[in-house]
Every structure is written in structure tokens, then in C-alpha cells.
Design a protein around this nucleic acid. Structure first.
Lengths: 231, 231
DNA sequence: AGGAACAACTTGACACTGTACAGATGAGGG
DNA sequence: CCCTCATCTGTACAGTGTCAAGTTGTTCCT
């Protein structure tokens, strides 16, 4: 019974290999990065043979997909928490979620790289699709609420035809700025400008200046308040 | 003698293996993508043993670095050509280089992924540093010219202390938007919104709406005309 | 021209990788 | 109690990047 719940290993069966593999994957990503990521190394850390994970994840892509799902949900959690905090202190929710996006990626760059395209994932996986849609939904809702001048987005499900919405461009602009800066920073493209220890300064620059320019670039559209969600 | 110049293979020595390997690398990247990229496969296509490339590139990272250098220069060439075309037709040069960035990446997504971080490169390589600085320099110059209201950036070398320049944020904003949109599109993050065949529509959306919002977000600063380059 | 030095390439090996398959193991349901 | 079946092991295979030692051809010096 300690077998089914604990992380330990009593005998032949592991008990909770799926979770153990995911934990190991996170650790390997943190230590070695996505380049040094290996299925066999994860299995080794979980104290299990190289072929064991196949039953739980199918193949390498399956494990990475599970990690990516976690990554999406972490992104969502961080953005929601940041938005709530901003509401409490009277700050801009939209600016808060952009900053949270960047901070989450910086906290776990390996995982972030798994989420966004580095290696092949199983894009049909319903759990990952749900997690991805959730994160994107936050972006949509907060962008709309900002433009409508609302304090917070109204509750409710996301509209399904986002791609044809009149504010599609504004939404993608917010995502592009945030994702672009994050990616460039994570991948070290700013290193030749500020050195490797300039991350803190760049984070400040992003929060104080980039996001300000972005937020100012979004034309207000009070009509969206009516549509808001579900429109 | 046909040995030193041609791509053919007469005897023991190849003659121009370095270029042959780069060509093969580009082909493999185009066919199989960065995930299916392999040093041995490139060597096979160049008609050479697996260990042969080591003498020219050191290791895999060396070959990828050479490809990345090409990618940076292609980006620069495309941006310069687009800017010149925009000047001729009276369009916005800044908008043109943003679109060129996206189009270049879409034309060769595998190479673009090599340039921006997927696998480990030799970041100390002087040729790649030069190519990267050149591409970034175009971005800096065009952003400044745009804000200064100039038709084109004045000739001259780039200022060296870009990172502390007052318009650093504006420059990074342009890069972030363009790079972010490009990365998200290339990595298929928009697929769940518009399907896989919506690329053309997204390119239009980017050029007509995203870039417009971006360009409008950049506050004009005529004072930069004095500084411009070399300031 | 002859030979020596040297760069370019091959061969063979090693330690890895992901994955497939057959077999061992043990938990839980009838 | 035993039987089923998910889970895990062991082994194997093709393929990877890289290294060391040996071959081959060019080039340059005398």
C-alpha cells in the first residue's frame, strides 16, 4: 500500500512511476537543460529500467507532452495569481500577466522550451490541448477586459471563434511581445548586449517599459465589454 | 583540379567538403526539420565518412553554428532588400523589415530554429557574432530612423553602447513582436486557432494589423535624428 | 625532380540513445 | 484460490556523436 502511494520502491512494481518519471524529467530539464534531456536518464533517476516508461507514456514524445501540459498549467496559474495580485494592489492586470509569463519561463527555462516547440510533442493529446487553450484563454480574456476598461474579465467560457474576432490582432500582439521577449531572453540572444548577468535589468526593462508601450498600443474598445466572453 | 572546385568527388579527398556539408545540412533541415537533423546524415549526403566533418567544423555544434551564421546573414539580406523596396514604393521601411523577418523564417523554418536556440551553438564563434550583430544593427538603425521620421537610416557603423541607449526598449519591442509572432507561428502554436493552412491569413494579419499597432506604439523622437548612428 | 610535412579523409571503436519484444512479477477480481 | 492483466525487466537492434590510429593526396622546400 505504501507502494501505491509513496514514491519509494518496494519490489518489482514501482507504484507511481508516471509521477516519478515526470518529477525526474523536471529535474533533468532543470539540471541539464533540454539539450541534455534523455528518456533513459529519467528512467535511471526513477530507479527503473529504460523500457518501463513506455507503458505509461508510449514514447519520449509522450513524456515531453506530459511535461508540456504541466508547463502550460503553471503558466496559467502564474498568470491568474499575478492578475489577482494586481487587482488587489490596483495595478494593471494585463501588465501583471505579461510579467508573470516571463518570470515563469525564467524560473524553469527547460520546461518552457519543451512547451514551445523545441522537440516534437504529441499535439493531439487532449490534456495538453486543454492546458494550452486555458493559458491562451487567460490572455484573451485579460486583453479584452483591458481594452474594455474593465477591472477584471467577466466569468464564463471563452468564445469559440476567437480567430475571427475583431480583436484577434490585439490579442496576438500581446502574446507575441511577451513570448518574443521571453524566448529571446531565455535563448541568450540579449547576452551580447547586456552580458549574462543582465537578466534582472532586462526583466525590469520589460515590466516598466516594454509592457507600458504595449499596453498603450492597444486601442480602447468599450464595445468589447458587452461581448466580453462568450460573444 | 575539378576536385578543388567542383562538388564532385574524384578520389580520396573531397575538395570542398565544408561547403558540401553546409549544403547538405540545409537540405536535411528543409526535409526532416531540426528534429531529424543528423551529422551522419549530412556526411552521407556529402558522400563522406561520418568522421570527416570533424576536421572542418570540430563537432556538430560547429556545423550548426555555420548554418546559423548563414541564417543571420539571410535575415539581414532579406531585411535590407525589403527596406530598399519599401523606400522605392513609399512604404514604411520598419514594417517592411518586420515582414521580411517573418517571411524569411517561414521560407526556411528549420534553419531559423537552428539560429534561435534549439540546439547548442558555439556562441563564441566570431563569424556568427558578426552576423548576429549585423542583423540586430539593421533593427536598431531602422527603428531609430522610423522614430526620427527619417526616410532611411544614415550610413555609418552602429553605436556600441546600444544597451544603455534611451531607445533600447523601443528597439527590443520591435524585435520581440516580430520574433514572438514568428516563433509562435513556426512552432504551430496558432494551429489550434486557424488550422495548419491559415499561414497566409496570419501573414496578412501580421503585416496589416500587428505591425500597424506596433509602429503606432513607437513614440516619435526627432532628437534621435541627430544621434542616429554612432551616437 | 625527390622527399618530407601536412591536411584531408577512412576505418573501427566506444559509449550513448530510443524503441521493440519476449518473459518475469505481483496485485486484484472472480 | 487462481487467473488475468497491467507493470516492469532483460536483451537486442539500429542509429547517434566523437575519438584514435591509419591512408591518401597535395604542397612546399631543397
Amino acid at each position: 500500500m505504501a507502494q501505491k502511494r509513496g514514491a519509494g520502491r518496494d519490489g518489482y512494481h514501482h507504484g507511481d512511476l508516471r509521477q516519478a518519471m515526470i518529477d525526474a524529467a523536471e529535474a533533468v530539464l532543470a539540471e541539464r537543460g533540454v539539450g541534455g534531456f534523455t528518456l533513459r536518464e529519467c528512467a535511471r533517476r526513477a530507479g527503473v529500467s529504460a523500457a518501463a516508461p513506455a507503458h505509461h507514456f508510449g514514447n519520449l514524445a509522450g513524456l515531453l507532452t506530459a511535461v508540456a501540459t504541466l508547463g502550460f498549467d503553471d503558466l496559467s496559474d502564474a498568470m491568474e495569481a499575478a492578475a489577482a495580485r494586481a487587482s488587489a494592489t490596483g495595478g494593471s492586470r494585463l501588465a501583471a500577466i505579461c510579467r508573470a509569463y516571463l518570470e515563469t519561463a525564467l524560473a524553469r527555462p527547460g520546461r518552457f522550451r519543451v512547451v514551445f516547440g523545441r522537440r516534437e510533442l504529441d499535439k493531439e493529446d487532449p490534456e495538453m490541448q486543454r492546458a494550452g487553450a486555458r493559458a491562451f484563454g487567460i490572455l484573451v480574456a485579460e486583453t479584452r477586459a483591458h481594452r474594455a476598461g474593465l477591472a477584471a474579465p467577466p466569468p464564463g467560457p471563452l468564445p469559440s471563434e476567437t480567430a475571427t474576432a475583431p480583436d484577434f490582432a490585439e490579442i496576438l500582439l500581446v502574446w507575441s511581445v511577451t513570448h518574443g521577449f521571453t524566448t529571446l531572453l531565455i535563448d541568450g540572444q540579449f547576452d551580447f548586449l547586456v552580458g549574462e548577468d543582465g537578466t534582472e535589468a532586462l526583466l525590469e526593462l520589460f515590466s516598466r517599459r516594454l509592457v507600458q508601450l504595449l499596453v498603450a498600443a492597444l486601442p480602447p474598445e468599450p464595445a468589447l465589454a458587452k461581448r466580453g466572453h462568450d460573444g
